[in-house]
Amino acid sequence: MTALSATLVVLGGGGAHASGQQSPGTAGPMPAHVAAPYVETWTGESPAALAAESGNKYLTMAFLQTPVAGSCTAYWNGDTTKPIARAAFGDDIAAIQARGGNVIPSFGGYSADTTGTELADSCTSVDAIAAVYENLARTYGITRIDLDVEADSITDTAGIDRRNKAIAKAERWADRTGHNLQFSYTLPTTNTGLAPSGVALLQNAVDNHARVDVVNIMTFDYWDGVRHDMAADTKSAAAGLHGQLAALYPKKNPARLWGVIGVTEMPGIDDYGPEETFTTPDAVTVEKWAAARGIDTLSFWALQRDNGGCVGTAGANSCSGIAQDTWYFSHVFESFTRGRHVH
């Protein structure tokens, strides 16, 4: 995502879904329908505390990236004091897992994708990239990895090919060692589906036998100067993606393809401006639609924005810019995970 970005999910054949916490290395897969908002991990706040306060069982943790272009070592936000290790966020992740949830670590985002520090753009070794994914799963007991590919990264064909080869390699490792491991791609979208660059990325995944379990589209940034009905455009963007996935995966039936789709919103006034405002009624509409369609993931950028502390402000990192109750969007979307929907 931009200072606000989201999640890329790879389209999967998918096994049985289950929830519930197990020890690292044996954790069960994500629920078939999950709300997992992004959390900004660079703020110094505790993801576990934010999850508890907001009522979220699942979080997407942004972002992992290399400290400099050319490196093959990923750190949280590129900060070399925060490696993939239990000492960095291990207690938070364990606390979330102990409450029956899990986290989805996310690689990339707008900053990494424009500085050559997204892991697969930075590192030229497929084996080294795959080893980072495998180490992440082992270290934290997570079962899904998100790949936020946008900006310069979505046209970096060498990086795209390495990433998909590394996904396939990590998936073979997971199958061999008994780990549950999914991949999601978070990608930019138009209001009628992916741009050709996003389709080409997924075609490369098909060509490399990389299973994509979720394709998560950022249904908040269209940058076209048009005032948008954000709920209606979420539906039309996802419908367009569904058609694109049907062409990429002709053996999957329509219901199964809906189960590969994720959407990520931005509560309130997004970074473009008032023309792209996701309202509290929009949240209810989208949650009901997501449940009826049976999509995989509902997310938003970002958890720290889920409050009404800056009415009228566009694109703030710590508030939505609209009048709302604190954690309103979390509570509405969390109904999607529980299967009890807001009316």
Rank of each mutant, 00 (worst) to 15 (best):
T2C: 09
S5R: 10
T7D: 15
T7N: 14
V9A: 14
V9K: 15
G12N: 09
G12F: 00
G12K: 02
G15Y: 03
A16P: 06
A16D: 15
H17N: 13
A18Q: 10
S19D: 13
P24G: 03
G25E: 05
G25A: 02
A36C: 12
G44Q: 04
S46H: 01
A51M: 08
A52M: 10
A52W: 05
Y58K: 05
V68C: 05
C72S: 05
G78Y: 02
T80R: 13
T81A: 12
P83H: 01
A85P: 04
R86P: 05
A87Q: 09
I93P: 01
I96E: 08
A98D: 13
G101Y: 03
N102F: 01
V103D: 03
G109V: 09
D113L: 02
G116P: 04
T117V: 09
L119T: 01
A120H: 04
S125E: 05
S125K: 00
V126F: 01
Y140I: 05
I142S: 06
R144D: 15
I145M: 11
L147N: 09
I154W: 00
T155N: 12
T157Q: 14
A158L: 10
R162L: 05
N164G: 07
E171T: 07
Y185T: 08
T189H: 01
T192K: 09
G193Q: 00
V206H: 04
H209G: 07
A210D: 13
V212P: 15
V215W: 02
I217R: 00
W223C: 06
W223T: 07
D229C: 00
M230D: 08
T234Y: 00
A237T: 07
A239Y: 03
G240Q: 03
H242Q: 05
Q244A: 02
Q244V: 06
A247S: 08
K251F: 08
R256C: 14
W258A: 02
T264P: 06
E265A: 04
P267Y: 01
G268Q: 07
D270R: 01
T280H: 09
E287A: 14
A291Y: 12
A292Q: 12
G294E: 04
D296I: 09
D296Y: 15
L298P: 11
L298C: 09
S299W: 04
Q304N: 11
Q304S: 12
R305S: 10
G309E: 06
C310D: 14
A314R: 12
Q324D: 13
D325K: 15
S330L: 08
H331Y: 01
S335H: 12
S335N: 13
R338M: 13
R340H: 14
V342A: 15
